[in-house]
Design a protein around this nucleic acid. Sequence first.
DNA 1: GAGCCTGCGGAAAGCGCTTTCCATGCGCCG
DNA 2: CGGCGCATGGAAAGCGCTTTCCGCAGGCTC
Lengths: 345, 345
Amino acid sequence: MAVTLGDVARHAGVSLATASRALNGSARSVTEELSAKVRASADVLGYLPNAPAQALARSTGATVGVLLHDVADPYFGAIARGVGDAAAREGLLSMVTSTDGDPQRELQAIRMLHAQRVRAIILAGSAYNEASVVRQLDDALSAYQEQGGRVTAISDHGPWYDTVDVENRGGAASLTRELARLGHRRFAVITGPERMRVAEDRLAGVLDGLADFDLTLPETSLQRTEFTREGGRAAMARILDVTRASGAPRPTAVIALSDICAAGVLAELRERSISVPGEISVAGFDDIPLATDLAPALSTVRLPLGRMGADAVRLALAAPSREPDRVHAFAEVVLRASTAAPAED
Amino acid sequence: MAVTLGDVARHAGVSLATASRALNGSARSVTEELSAKVRASADVLGYLPNAPAQALARSTGATVGVLLHDVADPYFGAIARGVGDAAAREGLLSMVTSTDGDPQRELQAIRMLHAQRVRAIILAGSAYNEASVVRQLDDALSAYQEQGGRVTAISDHGPWYDTVDVENRGGAASLTRELARLGHRRFAVITGPERMRVAEDRLAGVLDGLADFDLTLPETSLQRTEFTREGGRAAMARILDVTRASGAPRPTAVIALSDICAAGVLAELRERSISVPGEISVAGFDDIPLATDLAPALSTVRLPLGRMGADAVRLALAAPSREPDRVHAFAEVVLRASTAAPAED
DNA sequence: GAGCCTGCGGAAAGCGCTTTCCATGCGCCG
DNA sequence: CGGCGCATGGAAAGCGCTTTCCGCAGGCTC
């Protein structure tokens, strides 16, 4: 039915081995003459290699796998794009799995990718803080690595993986300092769930920044929620309600540690007719493509999302070195219309 | 190195054939007793099937491929998510390729997916209008289908494919009528490149809607551009500049036939301090997740993006029928803050 | 109680490719 | 001018799985 290498070989009048060597690159060389003949035959017959067969014979496929929370989330979408492009440049296909940050689904995805004998697994979601979960995932990944698979992480997932180190903490600190410099003294922070390492890292960064100005974060001004628009919205609502109930003054700056959350924050404030940045300044994190189009344009911390994905692929495909490799992705504060100096009291 | 089915069979004291039948479902049945023994052994040894080997033996893999313009674009991201979820539910992995709407890259992607023996290829990008390009792609897809591959399209790519019919034309018409009903009489339209069928379909819909009110679209009020933020922005700028130069009155409503474009339009208007919807109403198309968070919240046409992706998978996996199957995805006009009745002249 | 059919386990033949391992022919050195 | 080594083509052995095809045993019918 399909044209096989055997057909090509016969058509070109050479052996199967020669055809294989001519078409699918190999250590061994074939004279240009034969090689050309084989290529011509392949062309005439419309030969298309059977990737599964190649994967079986070579015991490694032409694919990479990506684990992330949700491709439809602009943050992950941008990373997925970077990975896909870099992979394509190497002649590889990428398989993306959205796990919604559920460790069980992540575990299952690792198993499937392992079964597929993907050449590398890229961990693009957040690492977890819960030991038992980490253990399970690491075990599954170890099994994969022992069979020759490569694992690279975007943002720290443990020192034993090649990783693209994302400046989460430093970026959050810079952003916070920037806002403090504008004059803000009462902050509120909306971070992700405790179980996610990036959420904790970014939060730590904010605390660093505050500390530089001898500021602290009152407990009621720290909200944890999912990194989603609705999460951000609900968290903002809670902050507002609690401060009002307690009679405490409202924060003048709220930092949502993900742009998606920040979008929810803006929505809630708009609903309550609280002006941004007039009454409250709002900042996000990630600089997703549409951040600048929000109302008002969102101040945030830019991460080179596409590059991070591409770097992860590069690491995964580089010759394995003694020590895990690390490359750095630097954060950059981008101030736009959603932040301003606080109103005079 | 890796645990193979053979190892499992030996450990369980059964033949390779029995182990295969017990673990990886088959037409033939195995007594529950043996079956349990095999499963236990597989568990103990940590057996993970070798997907490429299975694909080779079964001559079809456990993957589906998706062709789209850009996963980082929210429109496609949402579709990709729908496809991924539906695939996962069937135990399949999905391979997404971003082609930036370049037919050559699309062609190459089809070949790679074909080589991978993916079970189905889902065409999620726009179909093209140029005959030679269409021909090439159709040829590659035919070759794939002849070898047992399934192809399904999201939005029309030709009557010979199973397709998720997206109500592009009807949706655009409804939106247009809605705006006309608000009192708008001078429209401008920003559509996609001529070579893309969805762009033409949506444009046709707008024209339908206008015709219902005996309205026409002056040539200078129709701009074609890429479906990107920058494209939208530039197009809006051109419209404004041209009408000003010609001394003609400004349109009171501009319809961008993709939300991403609309985001650019809003940016340009903001830059020029033209109030929306005060001076000009703006509407988009797709209802991407962040549409409601733009400034101002964008009126648009909602498409069930995730469902469309899932439906495409469902079609692809259904038993092939005599006639290509078609399911419909209905559009729904969503009016938000970016549109209003035009100001009195 | 003999003959058959049915149900199920096992042997073995591939699936399409890569890659050793030979075999052959050539160039080159002494 | 002979022999050695290198370069290169070909035969064949897998890679790990599915699936046909056998063969056996047990239960049924008459």
